[in-house]
Design a protein around this nucleic acid. Structure first.
Length: 327
RNA sequence: GCCGAGGUAGCUCAGUGGUAGAGCGCGGCCCUGAAAAGGCCGGCGUGGGAAGUCCGAUUCUUCUCCUCGGCA
C-alpha cells in the first residue's frame, strides 16, 4: 500500500535552454505555481541581466522567490532552502503543486538531499583564514585541515582555498568535522513524490541561444541596469551575476562595449557547461531532449504526459544510480 | 616592383637538427551557507607548399605562395 504523497516537480537545465516558458505552460496544466531555483533571479533590480521570466509569463502563473532580496544583501543556499521549504508548505496547503524551475544545481540538490546544520559563516574567522592563506600559502591551511578533518581534506583539492576555509571554519565553530556533519541531512525525497526534468539540446544550438539572449539583453538595456546596480554596494553574492563584472570593465574603460558583450557570451557558455556537468551527475533526473526548434507547448505536453504516466525512474528515498534515461 | 618582418593548436604566440609547447578558447570533471562562485584534468597539430643538404628537418638552403610594415 502506497500512501499518497504530494508531488513536487523540477524543471532544470542550462541557462537559455527555455525553461521558463515550458514551466509556465506546464504549471497551468498541473495546477502548479512556480518556485524559482535560481541563485541570481532572487535579487531585486537584476531583471534583464538575469533574464527573469517576462511580466507576461508571471501574469499567467504565480512565480515565487524571484526578485525578493535586495542586491545589497547576501543570500545563500541555506536561506534559499528555508524560503523554498516555506513556499512548498504554503502551496501544498492550497492544494497546488510546487514546480521548481531554474538552473542552480546546488539549490536543487540541497532541497532534494538536505543541508547539514551549522551556523552561517563567521566573517571575522573567515577573513582571518583568508589572510593566513595569503601569508603562508594555500597549502598551509590545507595541512591544517588535514589534521582536524582528514576525510574532508581528501575530498578537497589543495588549491580549492574556498572549500578548505569553509571546512576549517565549520570545524572551529562547531568542533566537529564538516565531513561528519555533511552526513547528517534530510531532504525532500522521503516526504514527497519528486520528479525532475532537465531540458537539454545540442551544444551548438544552446550556444546560439545564449548568444542571442545576450544580444537581447543589450537591446533591453542591460547596460543601464548594470550601471544602476554597480552604483550600489552589491553584496558579495549578488555581485557575481554574469554581466556585472564584464560591464564594470567597460565602464572603467578597460575595453569597449562589444568586447564586454563577447565576454558575457563566453562566460555564459562556460557557465552552461558547468551546469550540465552538475545535472548529468544526478541520476534522478529525466532528460528531455529538445529537438530542433521544438515549441515550448510541445515540450510542456511531453513533460505532462510523462508525469501522468508516472514512469519516473525515481525517486523516493536514497540516491539511485544508473543510466540516464534519454527521452 | 623593391626592401624588411613573418607564416607552428580554434586565437595570440614560444621553441628545437631527433615529428613541438604556453596562455586563452574548447572538451571533461569536482562541488552542501559566495554556487551565474570556486577548484581539477585533457593538446584537440599534414609546423603555408615544393625541392635540396643530412642517418634524420618544424628547425639549415633554394624556389614558390600568402600576410603585414616601409619605399616606390
Amino acid at each position: 500500500m502506497s500512501q499518497e504523497k504530494n508531488s513536487i516537480v523540477f524543471i532544470v537545465g542550462p541557462t537559455a535552454v527555455g525553461k521558463s516558458e515550458v514551466a509556465a505552460l506546464l504549471a497551468k496544466k498541473i495546477n502548479a505555481e512556480i518556485i524559482s531555483c535560481d541563485s541570481m533571479q532572487i535579487y531585486k533590480g537584476m531583471d534583464i541581466i538575469t533574464s527573469k521570466p517576462s511580466p507576461a509569463l508571471i501574469k499567467q502563473v504565480p512565480h515565487h522567490l524571484i526578485g525578493i532580496v535586495a542586491p545589497t544583501s547576501r543570500y545563500d543556499v541555506s536561506k534559499y532552502r528555508k524560503d523554498a521549504l516555506k513556499k512548498i508548505n504554503e502551496l501544498v496547503k492550497q492544494g497546488k503543486t510546487p514546480l521548481f524551475v531554474g538552473g542552480t544545481g546546488l539549490y536543487m540538490t540541497i532541497l532534494l538531499d538536505g543541508i547539514f546544520q551549522a551556523k552561517a559563516e563567521d566573517k571575522v574567522l573567515r577573513s582571518r583564514l583568508y589572510q593566513l592563506a595569503k601569508q603562508r600559502g594555500g597549502l598551509y591551511l590545507y595541512k591544517q585541515l588535514a589534521k582536524v578533518d582528514p576525510i574532508a581534506a581528501k575530498k578537497i583539492h589543495p588549491n580549492d582555498t574556498k572549500r578548505i576555509i569553509r571546512a576549517i571554519e565549520v570545524y572551529k565553530i562547531t568542533g566537529k568535522p564538516i565531513s561528519q556533519l555533511q552526513t547528517q541531512r534530510k531532504g525532500l525525497t522521503d516526504d514527497y513524490d519528486i520528479r525532475i526534468f532537465c531540458l537539454h539540446m545540442e551544444r551548438e544550438a544552446l550556444y546560439k541561444r545564449i548568444d542571442a539572449r545576450v544580444e537581447r539583453m543589450f537591446k533591453q538595456g542591460v547596460v543601464k541596469e548594470a550601471s544602476k546596480l554597480l552604483k550600489l554596494r552589491l553584496s558579495k553574492t549578488a555581485k557575481f551575476a554574469i554581466g556585472l563584472r564584464e560591464l564594470k570593465g567597460y565602464f572603467w574603460g578597460a575595453y569597449d562595449l562589444e568586447e564586454a558583450k563577447e565576454m558575457m557570451k563566453q562566460n555564459t557558455r562556460q557557465y552552461a557547461k558547468r551546469q550540465l556537468t552538475w545535472f548529468r551527475k544526478d541520476k534522478r533526473i529525466q532528460w528531455i531532449e529538445v529537438r530542433g526548434n521544438e515549441k515550448s507547448v510541445t515540450l510542456a505536453n511531453r513533460i505532462f504526459k510523462l508525469l501522468k504516466k508516472g514512469q519516473s525512474p525515481l525517486i523516493t528515498g536514497k540516491l539511485k544510480t544508473g543510466t540516464v534515461p534519454v527521452i
